[in-house]
């Protein structure tokens, strides 16, 4: 994209018209969901900093971020798909199975590079199958990725892994730095999260394909009629998501020194969706960006960290987390109510 093409978009892009709409609705300040969640994060952060001993320390801050780094990376992959009006439930399978395959292959005596190639090929295949099913066979994304994730998890269980938890082996040591290293005092998982965030932000905002993703998410039919390669771009979204999932899995494996493949059975996928949607990326597509994922991740991370410090049980943590989230989306719906006239069909 040349400079000449870019400049008009910069001048008359989304935000001025959004501001105009806001002004037209009565001139009142109406915070978006993104703002509300960010405000909620700040309030919680402030409360915890003042009331919780040991919360606002540099060490705890790094722990907080490290704990949610993997969740954040997964959220980034999911964000690309959700912006393109889809959803990828097979992300956890991509997180668990191909990285597990790396560990297993290295354990069996293959070289690390071969194992990595195999893992990314598997991730690529998953993305391609997902994309083909959704773009060409027109299976709803919710259903297609549910089934493909189930298939991949089954494949891992039946054919790839000997045990549910695949152990780290010495041949993997080259990758240890991804999980346990530090760059300038910052744990590498956080750096990886930042790295992935920058790459995807550049993709979404600065490349032509990235704007195609927004266009397709906003109105798939209009995008097709306008001549965009809608189907290949949808395939690309799912390929990117599953590759990001594989990447997150490798970071996870490196930081816990094993790959617990039963993670597929957990409710992690729901946390990922929460991060994305809570941050303000609407499930109806075409809205939001990487900033929203970061905000969502920060909120979830803060809450989890504080509750861990308060020594709450896992169930109690979930309960509180759920209630806070509910309050967040209810506030959003009061401030930005859905309009029956413009609500989109199938907008669940």
């Amino acid at each position: 994209m040349t400079k000449a093409e870019k400049s008009p978009r910069g001048e008359s892009g989304r935000s001025p018209s959004a501001a105009r709409v806001r002004r037209a609705r009565g001139g009142l300040f109406r915070p978006s969901q993104q703002t509300i969640v960010f405000a909620l994060f700040l309030v919680l952060f402030l409360i915890f900093s003042l009331s919780l001993h040991g919360f606002l320390t540099p060490d705890n801050m790094l722990t907080l971020l490290q704990n949610v780094a993997v969740l954040g990376i997964l959220g980034l992959g999911m964000a690309v798909v959700v912006i393109g009006r889809g959803i990828d439930l097979s992300l956890i399978a991509a997180l668990a199975v191909p990285p597990g395959l790396v560990l297993q292959m290295v354990q069996n005596g293959h070289t690390l590079s071969l194992a990595l190639i195999a893992a990314f090929a598997l991730g690529l295949a998953l993305g391609l199958v997902n994309g083909w099913l959704i773009a060409y066979a027109e299976v709803p994304s919710l259903f297609a990725t549910l089934a493909s994730g189930l298939f991949l998890a089954g494949l891992g269980q039946a054919a790839l892994f000997k045990l549910d938890v695949v152990q780290w082996s010495p041949g993997m040591n080259a990758l240890t730095i991804l999980g346990q290293g530090r760059v300038a005092g910052v744990p590498v998982p956080i750096v990886m999260f930042g790295f992935a965030a920058i790459v995807l932000a550049l993709f979404l905002r600065q490349t032509r394909l990235g704007s195609f993703v927004y266009a397709i998410g906003d109105n798939p039919n209009a995008a097709r009629i306008a001549g965009l390669p809608a189907r290949p771009v949808v395939v690309l979204q799912y390929v990117m998501a599953s590759l990001v999932g594989v990447f997150a899995g490798i970071v996870l494996a490196a930081s816990v020194n094993s790959m617990p493949t039963r993670i597929y059975n957990s409710t992690l996928i729901y946390d990922v969706i929460l991060v994305v949607v809570l941050g303000g990326i609407g499930l109806s597509g075409g809205r939001g960006g990487i900033v929203n994922v970061i905000i969502g991740t920060l909120l979830i991370g803060t809450m989890l960290n504080a509750m861990t410090i308060m020594d709450l049980s896992y169930s109690a943590q979930n309960l509180i987390k759920g209630l806070v989230l509910l309050i967040a989306i209810m506030t959003d719906s009061f401030l930005n109510p859905r309009n029956e006239e413009t609500a989109q069909q199938g907008d669940i």
């Binding site: 089934a147 493909s148 189930l150 298939f151 998890a153 089954g154 494949l155 891992g156 269980q157 039946a158 054919a159």
Partner: peptide
Amino acid sequence: GVNRMVLA
């Protein structure tokens, strides 16, 4: 695992 694959 096979169970899951067939179902999927």
